[in-house]
């Protein structure tokens, strides 16, 4: 009887010890972080009216978004209508509030295009896009718009970034980027 008790307390002790050991290990749960970060289903978008334009400021914004990663890393003068920081619409900001850097497209990481510095080759070369794809009728503006907004519509496993479904850009910004790609470059 006495021995049994002793045994069970030893056992209890060592069990408590094991639990204690695991609790000294960092093992936070990440499932919520991932769940919040998931992507909605593939979505079809239609270009809004007046989307494609030859307005030079719009094209300059598209150009800038294409070639830069974010407002923190971006160098040089910003085109009119583009900010380096991203305020949440409707939120008021005090002087102490830190406003995060605005994200741009960094499209050049995967695509070559006129004037690209260190352009990648994961995605197709977009050089002379107007001549090769638009003028020939191989592609149209709506196709390009959809590709940038959500490329999963015609390729579920695409390696292309998803830019409108994710809310990274606004409709207008997708229009600016599209206008830049289909424009005739000097």
């Amino acid at each position: 009887m006495k021995r049994l008790l002793l045994l069970s307390t030893t056992l209890g002790l060592s069990l408590a010890f094991a639990a204690d050991l695991s609790s000294s290990i960092e093992s936070p749960n990440a499932s919520k972080i991932i769940a919040k970060d998931l992507l909605g289903p593939a979505k079809v978008f239609t270009m809004p009216a007046g989307c494609i334009t030859d307005d030079k400021d719009a094209i300059a914004r598209g150009d800038f978004i294409f070639h830069n990663l974010n407002g923190k890393k971006a160098k040089g003068k910003l085109p009119p209508g583009l900010a380096k920081k991203q305020k949440v619409p409707g939120k008021t900001y005090g002087p102490q509030d830190k406003i995060p850097a605005k994200q741009y497209g960094n499209c050049v990481a995967c695509h070559n295009i006129e004037g690209a510095k260190g352009g990648g080759n994961i995605g197709p070369d977009l050089t002379s896009y107007h001549d090769f794809f638009i003028k020939t009728g191989v592609r149209n503006n709506q196709y390009v718009y959809q590709k940038i907004a959500d490329a999963r519509v015609d390729n579920a496993d695409t390696h292309m970034t998803i830019n409108l479904t994710t809310g990274l850009f606004t409709e207008r910004e997708i229009c600016d980027i599209t206008s830049y790609i289909v424009s005739i470059k000097k």
């Binding site: 992507l39 260190g118 352009g119 990648g120 080759n121 994961i122 970034t161 830019n163 479904t165 994710t166």
Partner: peptide, 20 residues
């Protein structure tokens, strides 16, 4: 924010490609 997975850049069909 960009709808990418590890697979987007480390799948056999893009390995060896140039990302910036």
């Amino acid at each position: 924010g960009r709808g990418l997975s590890c697979m987007s850049c480390h799948s056999p069909d893009v390995i060896g490609g140039i990302l910036r």
